[in-house]
Design a protein around this nucleic acid. Structure first.
Lengths: 327, 327
DNA sequence: ATTAAAAGTGGGATCGATTCCACATTAGAC
DNA sequence: GTCTAATGTGGAATCGATCCCACTTTTAAT
């Protein structure tokens, strides 16, 4: 491999001069620049990032930790992240936890050992151990999707969007709305969205029935089974709200297989699957959290931190309701 | 930041001993090991990957170049890649070209400057310039999706799968099948699949009409417009085959908006959208190229190359036909 | 008891860049 | 024509690891 020393020798200058030219700092004569450029061109030289970052403590790489890439939500967020990183000449080191919590902590360490300049975490919990690990981190960590204590983070408007959707369902005439949620480990999705559901029912003087509240684990399959549990109850609800896209797909699969008509037999609303919801029949009424923009926004916050901004920031992202004919 | 020297000093050994212990080569006494472990535990030390890879020329990072992550096909491939990389303790540096060809070449260089150990390219063309760049690469490059000259690659069974699907459509009674393809820059999708379509029509003594062959650019939108072009012709076809998932979604959108009934008015078949095709109404008949497994397979080939296997390998991946009611 | 092999350790060179510093040359100001 | 500032250059230290080599101590074999 060609090194800076080879270039220096071939161009008849010192390696300091080559470095100065490459980084455009300090003085280099016109002639020297030309000789260096010529040699670089001929050899196809590119500086070793390892050596560079050993000296400068910067790698130009940002680590991204997410549960699983092959979901619409995650891949859209990554699109947004990528866009901002590219604008700022950063690269992305991608890791997947597959929803194993310990891996979030392990990856924060691993990414640091790889000397990333910063870390973006798509949050799935706010456990004490995780908060601690973030606090200990040498590099800035920003979080999307959870209100992570003491950390710059953007979370979705879980409460507002859910409450509004439930209100909308009630307006539409539904009176017995069931709920497919996730465990409380995930505060944003597991606690806040459930609370919004319960609060809104109460506000409208509707009963909150524990048997109408079921849980899945984010997977398509778990949505299927949660829906099954609900529909096997002695009395059936007239609608269902599913907290995530993947589980909604599973729930819909159960309903289709068992020949329930949506929305005639049961209304359905969810969050996510925004891009594909309109090709699914019936067209899903869903909350679009605008994941690309959220990914871009959290990345901009990280860029800010990398440029020395120290204070932690808390933002709530926006959303739009997409109205289909599933209600 | 804690370095190996700090650990050495605190544990009262030399930095060589710490290194030997960490890498489990050479001799280190039991007591020394314990002292070192204790200090590492206390300080939360992790070795600097930059320094390490400057010496060893290995980073444990594999670069992945793909057109766009937020498509079902790409994200499933990445899932497969990730799985194998994780098993082998590699990390993934992800880049997106957004279908700009020059970026494929630029990223091959960039990734090398970042000292990745190998590169996985989701191929979109086999241009001379790209082939040259791959040949010049210091690190192994493997390609998925194209039969890249001189390079270890896995391509999909484009011809066979397409021909079989067209045959199946003909068996089903369709006689005027239109085609939405992509430009020939992409040999696998643009040339081979079209050839299979044409050959199969000919084999069955059906006319090949140029006006039935349209092109898109992989985007949903282009699928929409291609479908529009076809349906605005004086005589309408009785079926359409769309070469990629995204474009199929667009084509379907056009048909739905204009109240064409699938399959009564027009039959439809495609490749991809395998995971979601069954939730779309009608359930799409599609070719599933089993992208996770393809991603895993190409990554295994790369791992082989990293372990010294030198010969270039050419493989064809498998597929399954998923039968829906869109035909 | 002698000796060779095994076990254990530290010093120093090295990887390829950046960056500080000393020094030489040139240009411009008076 | 001096003097200072700007321009231009190379040497050497440094980043944090690996790894070869030299050396000492322990163990085991004869």
């Amino acid at each position: 491999m060609t090194t800076i020393n080879d270039i220096a020798r071939l161009a008849n200058v010192s390696r300091s001069t080559v470095s100065r030219h490459l980084n455009k700092n300090g003085y280099v004569s016109q002639e020297a620049q030309e000789r260096i450029d010529k040699v670089i061109e001929e050899t196809g030289y590119f500086p070793s990032q390892s050596a560079k970052s050993l000296r400068t403590k910067k790698t130009g790489v940002v680590g991204v930790i997410l549960p699983k890439i092959s979901t619409e939500t995650a891949s859209r967020v990554v699109d947004g992240i990528n866009q901002v990183l590219q604008e700022n000449d950063y690269q992305m080191l991608l890791t997947q936890t597959l929803l194993e919590k310990e891996k979030e902590i392990a990856f924060i360490r691993l990414l640091q050992s790889r000397n990333v300049d910063g870390i973006i975490l798509l949050g799935t919990n706010t456990d004490e151990a995780l908060v601690e690990e973030i606090k200990k981190s040498d590099v800035p960590v920003v979080v999307l999707g959870q209100d992570m204590p003491g950390t710059t983070s953007i979370h979705y408007p879980d409460y507002k969007a859910t409450a509004e959707m439930i209100s909308y369902m009630i307006e539409k005439g539904y009176r017995d709305i069931s709920f497919i949620g996730v465990p409380e480990d995930d505060p944003a999705v597991g606690i806040v969205r459930k609370k919004a559901y319960i609060d809104t029912l109460k506000e409208h003087n509707l009963p909150v029935l524990t048997e109408r509240i079921t849980y899945g684990d984010f997977s398509i399959n778990s949505g299927y089974h949660a829906m099954e549990t609900i529909m096997k109850q002695s009395t059936k609800p007239d609608a269902v709200f599913v907290v995530t896209d993947n589980m909604a797909v599973g729930a819909m699969q159960y309903l289709k297989e068992n020949h329930y008509n949506i929305p005639a037999d049961i209304g359905m609303a969810t969050t996510g699957v925004s891009r594909l919801s309109k090709y699914i029949e019936p067209v899903l009424t869903t909350i679009d959290f605008q994941n690309e923009e959220a990914g871009a926004a959290i990345t901009r916050l990280l860029m800010g931190q990398l440029n020395g901004y120290k204070k932690t920031k808390k933002l709530t992202h926006t959303y739009r309701r997409l109205t289909g004919n599933s209600l």
